[in-house]
């Protein structure tokens, strides 16, 4: 099936298999490999992207369901060679270790800040409750989001 995808502000017309998930299209067809496949069941959050303004697991959305909607991936955060303030805050606070969860974690935090520029610690924790990290212990991630918020 031919479908139109609006990814990071660019329109793509793609031939998509009905069984393909959004994650498959992003990684395999568009070569946007920031979103990672982890559990493949919506449990770990490594594949988190933003669809029509909210964070979702791209491993449990069929590509056909995302056609025509606004998709933002981790690749959209850097603008003109400059990292997003969230990305900078993650680096400054040591919130990245092995890095596998980081794109998903950042997109969950980005979705939060798009809706709520001044979140509480509880709201940050809720935003990343679906993102598993086995390196940082989460504390540095929360600290990074707080720093990014402070800069706004």
């Amino acid at each position: 099936m031919e479908m139109e995808f609006n990814v990071n502000g660019i329109k793509h017309i793609l031939e998509v298999d009905p069984m393909e998930r959004l994650l498959d299209v992003l990684r395999n067809k568009l070569k946007l490999t920031g979103a990672k496949e982890g559990c493949g069941e919506g449990e770990c959050g490594a594949c988190t992207i933003i669809l029509d303004g909210v964070a979702i697991n791209s491993c449990i959305v069929l590509a056909a369901q995302a056609a025509g909607r606004e998709i933002l991936t981790i690749e959209s955060l850097e603008k003109d060679g400059e990292l997003d303030r969230l990305q900078k805050a993650f680096i400054n606070n040591g919130a990245v270790q092995c890095g596998y969860c980081t794109p998903g974690m950042l997109m969950s935090c980005k979705a939060l800040l798009m809706k709520n520029p001044a979140p509480t610690e509880e709201e940050i924790k809720t935003a990343i409750e679906g993102n598993l990290c086995r390196c940082t212990g989460y504390t540095k991630i929360i600290k990074a989001v707080k720093e990014a918020v402070k800069d706004i």
Binding site: G42, G45, A55, I56, I60, V61, S108, T126, A127, G130
Partner: peptide
Amino acid sequence: VGSTQIRNA
């Protein structure tokens, strides 16, 4: 129910 991402979908 589930996580933020699950509830969003």
